[in-house]
């Protein structure tokens, strides 16, 4: 069983030790920026000859893109993997859960995010108008 660690942040040695990953784990530096190009990221994961894919990071709770990372694993056809941090915390990946649960969460987030942006845009304009008017009076 081969394992590849895609390192988003933190120290690869600490992550390998914290999760008892095999000593011959291949470490590939990876960045959030690469995720902006989903197609090439999926292709990178797909063409990496490995059984288990681990996305490593300093702290799981500080890492964004959980669902997107799992979606990438799914689209790359990977069946085994997880998100892991230096403190020993991990977020499990299962293709079925990603398809049925995580994708719904992601879709909900996309819709809610549009609402949040619109809300902020309206609120800020209104505040600027009312506070400017208040200052003039």
């Amino acid at each position: 069983m081969s394992t590849t660690l895609f390192l988003l942040s933190g120290n690869s040695k600490n992550i390998i030790a914290a999760h008892n990953l095999p000593h011959d784990t291949t470490v590939i530096p990876f960045s959030e920026k690469q995720l902006l190009s989903l197609r090439s990221t999926i292709s990178l994961i797909r063409t990496t000859p490995t059984d288990t894919v681990v996305f490593g990071m300093k702290k799981l709770s500080l890492q964004r893109y959980h669902q997107i990372l799992k979606g990438v694993l799914l689209l790359a056809g990977k069946t085994s993997g997880f998100l892991a941090d230096e403190t020993g915390m991990r977020s499990a990946y299962s293709p079925l859960r990603t398809l049925l649960v995580e994708s719904v969460i992601l879709a909900t987030e996309i819709i809610a995010s549009c609402g949040i942006v619109l809300q902020a845009w309206i609120r800020l304009r209104l505040r600027a108008l009312t506070e400017k008017r208040g200052a003039q009076q």
Partner: peptide, 8 residues
């Protein structure tokens, strides 16, 4: 809920 996009 908001974990996948920056700034949101």
């Amino acid at each position: 809920l908001y974990k996948n996009f920056p700034e949101i």
